[in-house]
Write a protein that binds this DNA or RNA. Structure first.
Length: 332
DNA sequence: CGAATTTGACCAGCGC
DNA sequence: GCGCTGGTCAAATTCG
């Protein structure tokens, strides 16, 4: 299913060793198995769409009332509002783009927990149960691409590596991580692009059922690497700037780090990038969307109207055919 | 010594 | 049914 034509669609701001370059909604992977979703699929899915990394990692979904989906008016028909409105964030179970979905998602989380409990029971009963859960429910997934020398990007949560596999058509192995927090079943996969070894694709699956762990100053949010982030220090851990969306209570819970951080360009907020990306109607769409989120009066001007998505450039016309079909399938 | 990582084996889904 | 591939498990090993 690999399609190499997408490798060049991910634009990364030049001059940064670590930078967000794209976010991809993975929630639409329903009809295929998980294994059908290769790296290039990630590159194709949800291109130009999806929330900023802020949203994905630290912001509960904005309910439709607060964020009417622009999909119907701006987006091509093949794009579903689900894709735009986003994937559930990994942070909270109760987050969703609709009340119905919220309930579903909550159920999913509960189901996941029950599943874990079942697995534990099985472990006790047998030494090697090798769980058998027919039709496992797939957690919502999304992926983003970063340009980084390090594979495992630090997003504030604690991850435990539980596997590594060689990937077909790629010289780089894929690593599997699981959130170390008990009862939190969030997983993520990390793999390096075979086409551009400097880029790392991180795929999150599931939603965190807990706040972002409070970490000692300097350990997570204020990474030493982060300090050198903009200086081309190279090899820095992934850094997510502080969002200022007004979803405060949860937000405060979810963003213990980056909080006191002064963020200066690493992220390419300069006019060049802006104008470039603004040329894409989808980029504009995103900016509009982000503005809806933003309204905190105390918001930092750094990120307002300058979503990370400005770093993403991908002509809508390049959307992969298969993806369109996939999304059409979902609409039905 | 406990936690995290590594790594080979196993399992499941999919295509042929 | 079989082979391929992705995903997970868990014992062994390494690390702090």
């Amino acid at each position: 299913m690999a399609n190499s034509t997408f490798s060049d669609q991910v634009m990364v701001p030049a001059g940064f060793s670590t930078s967000l370059s794209g976010i991809y909604d993975m929630t639409c992977d329903e009809k295929g198995s998980s294994s059908s979703l290769g790296f290039m699929d990630m590159l194709g899915i949800g291109q130009d769409f999806g929330p900023s990394l802020f949203d994905l990692l630290h912001t509960p979904l904005t309910p439709p009332q607060a964020l009417p989906s622009p999909a119907s008016s701006v987006m091509p028909e093949s794009m579903t509002s689900e894709v735009v409105n986003t994937p559930a964030t990994p942070n909270s179970c109760s987050i969703s783009s609709s009340s119905t979905e919220a309930a579903n998602e909550e159920n999913q989380c509960k189901a996941a927990e029950e599943e874990d409990q079942d697995q534990e029971k099985a472990k006790k009963q047998q030494l090697k149960p090798k769980k058998k859960n027919p039709k496992r429910q797939r957690e919502p997934r999304f992926a983003f691409v970063t340009k980084s020398e390090v594979d495992h990007l630090d997003d504030g949560y604690r991850w435990r590596k539980y596997g590594q596999k060689a990937v077909k058509n790629s010289p780089f192995p894929r690593s599997y991580y699981r959130c170390t927090t008990a009862a939190c079943g969030v997983k993520k996969r990390v793999e390096r692009s075979s086409d551009d070894p400097s880029t790392v694709v991180t795929t999150y699956e599931g939603t965190h059922t807990h706040p972002c762990p409070v970490t000692p100053r300097g350990s997570i949010g204020m990474l030493p690497e982060a300090a050198s982030f903009g200086g081309g220090g190279g090899g820095g851990s992934f850094l997510i700037p502080q969002p200022h969306y007004q979803v405060q209570q949860q937000q405060q819970q979810l963003q213990p780090y980056f909080h006191n951080q002064t963020v200066v360009p690493p992220f390419n907020f300069n006019s060049t990038t802006t104008s470039t990306n603004s040329s894409s109607p989808y980029a504009n769409l995103f900016l509009q969307q982000e503005r809806r989120f933003v309204p905190s009066p105390s918001s930092s001007t750094l990120f307002r109207d300058h979503g990370l998505l400005q770093d993403m450039v991908a002509p809508p016309g390049q959307m992969r055919k298969e993806m369109k079909e996939e999304q059409l399938d979902q609409k039905v």
